[in-house]
């Protein structure tokens, strides 16, 4: 059963009462909220996600709500609860929906050390997965969105989950977090793409979430084998270039962009070494979307 098999009203009632149990990638999340804007956007962006009729075992029990005190009325702030703890500071009321996405990322990055977790997008085509690790602002999410709109399967936008057992990339297909100019770039590419509201003035600027493809969600159980690690950089109008990076330098780059490389200790070092051995490592500069798609397509072409 998927979320869209409930009416909006039913989904809203569940979120307000006993909570809604839904699946995202390998995780089951029990989610509660009274905040209308979250409900509206969640219903729109997670419509294809599997849900459960009854109470089920959940990896995370989360709630986003206003506290029960006078702050409700003056400059209201929303709180993220993981079970009965408040892991980070509240945010202004108008950022409630992005807080759901960031909060889920926080839960996974801090509690799921059964994976090597890299701050990276992961996409797959022809059974070959590419990992795009990068600092914020490098155009990683933009490239992920462009490829998703061009037939690639999105495995992840923010958190690459790498199995410690066999190095496969585990799908965690969630909405893509787009910032500032990228929002309009992607909107102009496709009329059918579905967006959340636009949230201005977050600490990352304006933010909007793009719904991922239905295929990406429905194939959430199909892992993919990483073949390339690509460090993307968007430079406006620049001609595309794909240049090899030494494995050692890519190792350091991925380690620095991993949430739990250091938690995993010796095992982290060994798993990341093996992952680097498995993949071709590249720097990728792009300035034109069509050109970027072509180059990525040819990289994973079957020949």
């Amino acid at each position: 059963m998927i979320l869209s098999s409930l009416t909006f009203h039913e989904a809203r009632t569940r979120l307000k009462s006993n909570g809604l149990y839904f699946k995202t990638g390998p995780f089951t999340i029990h989610f509660n909220t009274h905040i209308e804007n979250i409900t509206k956007n969640f219903y729109k962006l997670y419509s294809e996600n599997q849900i459960f009729e009854q109470e089920v075992f959940s990896d995370f029990h989360i709630k986003i709500d206003l506290p029960n005190n006078f702050r409700r009325w003056v400059r209201p702030q929303v709180f993220f609860y993981l079970d009965n703890e408040i892991p980070f500071k509240p945010l202004p009321f108008n950022q409630a929906y992005p807080m759901l996405e960031w909060g889920m990322n926080w839960c996974i990055a801090n509690h799921s050390h059964q994976y090597l977790i890299i701050h990276a997008a992961v996409l797959e085509k022809n059974n070959k997965a590419i990992i795009l690790p990068a600092e914020p602002g490098s155009g990683k999410s933009t490239l992920a969105a462009i490829l998703t709109l061009n037939g690639w399967r999105l495995l992840s936008d923010e958190l690459a989950l790498i199995s410690l057992k066999d190095l496969s990339a585990i799908p965690l297909s969630r909405p893509i977090n787009l910032k500032n100019d990228s929002i309009d770039i992607i909107k102009s590419m496709s009329e059918t793409c579905i967006f959340s509201d636009v949230y201005d003035d977050t600490n990352k600027g304006s933010v909007a979430l793009l719904k991922t493809s239905n295929e990406s969600v429905s194939r959430a159980d199909e892992v993919a084998i990483p073949c390339f690690i690509i460090k993307p950089k968007y430079i406006n109008e620049s001609k595309a270039s794909l240049a090899r990076v030494s494995p050692g330098k890519m190792f350091m780059h991925v380690a620095e962009n991993s949430f739990n490389y250091s938690v995993l200790g010796k095992e982290g070092f060994e798993v990341l070494s093996n992952l680097i051995d498995l993949c071709g490592c590249f720097d990728f500069i792009y300035g034109n979307n069509t050109e970027a798609v072509n180059i990525m397509n040819s990289l994973v072409a079957n020949n």
């Binding site: 030494s246 494995p247 050692g248």
Partner: peptide, 15 residues
């Protein structure tokens, strides 16, 4: 101290 070498570069990890 663990080492992993690729060509002229090596990553080392101190346990």
């Amino acid at each position: 101290v663990l080492r992993k070498t690729w060509g002229s570069e090596s990553a080392i990890y101190h346990t």
